[in-house]
Design a protein around this nucleic acid. Structure first.
Lengths: 252, 252
DNA sequence: ACAAAAGTGTTTCTACTACACCCATGG
DNA sequence: CCATGGGTGTAGTAGAAACACTTTTGT
């Protein structure tokens, strides 16, 4: 890999093939999920510049080479663009690389652009603000976002579809569901995360036992939630545990 | 994402910031696994050019912009470099993207290079040949490859470690184990794949029933294997099924 | 007291484990 | 005949599903 000489024969090209000719632009995009109003939603921006002017898109942008000694870390770039485009400054609950999308025709512009996509879970923004070149940022229900109702820029429908699959799969064998909750939450709230994202109903009793028997999933705070709004017996409060993977999965 | 104008203020830089300044080189690398001599092995090349001259490395190289209308697909580039560097022309049993490694300092050269890494399973090569800039290509036991005995170029020890984890995890919930077998195989041979990669022993009887009760995992060919070499009752022959994911996992 | 939600207990069922046992071939 | 590995049967067990039941609050 990473050969210093690319002095092979290149029959299809007439121009001199310097290293510079093989360089491409690298962008990052984030599929940032949250649960808002009881609905599984993803953060989108409305593009304010061409190409795909006025299309919806995942927040993201180019990795900059003028930040740091040798350019930014891809993950830094993703977080910087997220902040610039949506005003989201709070810490994300979770962020991991989803995959890299690099088909030659994914960007219609002259320059080839590949994108490193991230999967994230974030706090619900009451009013995300559009910044820089994004004219508007808002959470959109995932079903609507991948439907025909919305025009997504570039290959963002593909990226988003992959990200949704990742989210649904990760609920089974990891503890990321806690990242969709507030800092302190009840087991019912955690259960609702599963029910909303999987669009299923889970047995409250069995879920309770399952979660409590998974070491490191949740931590008992020794206090109760206020039940005046919700009615019924006050539920115990928990916070996210230290474990990231479940030894026995939560079944759909 | 993918903004056409990068006309923001860039305080840390003095040079004019054109799009060209943000372009980087994109490479691909493959961690190609096989089982050879009853050992879980990975294909490595010995580098014939600096940097990391004479270090071992995963096969790979730059995505070329002079192939196709707008440059190659990343996956194409990975397969092309694999062929150029190792002479491997046969079809791979499996190939998927592993992840992109893009830290600014992962390549010591002047130009920044990021790498899209792939995870693959391939046929065992009796004598892989070094080609182009790779002076030697050979399968190396994975334990040795990630040990201190071997010097791996760039961040390839990190990539390889991630790829090994992926392989071990995928055995559980996917049917990729069949890709480590020859076209026709017995259930014992399939079981040995699990035993070798996981370094465990599995109960032959239970494994048999588990595999046979997983729809789409393997297909009965209606013929028996020759048992003259191995002794014992001749085993039925199977080929890989059509399913890629297992509904109930094989447990370690 | 009643409603509502939290949390526990109990029965049933399913699936895995462990291991005994039979089968089919070569020598 | 025996040795060897392939393949099946079965009892014991762990855990999930279904659901009845108890607990604790607000009104």
């Amino acid at each position: 890999m990473e050969r210093s000489n690319s002095s092979d024969n290149h029959p299809q090209s007439t121009e001199p093939l310097t290293i510079e000719n093989h360089k491409v632009l690298v962008a990052t995009d984030i599929a940032l999920f949250t649960i808002k109003d009881g609905i599984f939603q993803v953060l989108l921006i409305k593009r304010g510049v061409p190409p795909f002017l006025d299309f919806w898109a995942l927040p993201g942008g180019l990795i900059r080479m003028d930040i740091g000694e040798r350019g930014e870390e891809p993950e830094e770039a993703a977080l910087r663009e997220l902040k610039e485009e949506t005003g989201l400054a709070k810490d994300l609950g979770y962020l991991e690389q989803l995959g890299t999308y690099g088909s030659p025709n994914r960007d219609p512009r002259e320059q080839r652009v590949i994108s490193i996509a991230y999967f994230g879970i974030g706090p619900t923004l009451e009013d995300p603000e559009g910044g820089s070149d994004a004219s508007h940022a808002t959470f959109v229900p995932v079903e609507k976002a991948i439907s025909d109702q919305l025009d997504l820029a570039f290959d963002h429908r593909l990226i988003l579809t992959d990200a949704i699959k990742r989210a649904r799969a990760k609920l089974e064998y990891s503890t990321i569901a806690t990242q969709f909750c507030t800092q302190e939450f009840t087991i019912s709230e955690l259960r609702r995360v599963y029910e909303i994202i999987w669009d299923t109903e889970l047995d409250p009793g069995n879920f309770q036992k399952k979660v409590l028997s998974s070491p490191g999933f949740i931590m008992d705070l020794g206090r109760n939630a206020d039940s005046s709004q919700t009615g019924g017996r006050p539920a115990k409060l928990y916070s996210a545990g230290t474990e990231t993977l479940l030894n026995s999965p939560i079944r759909r």
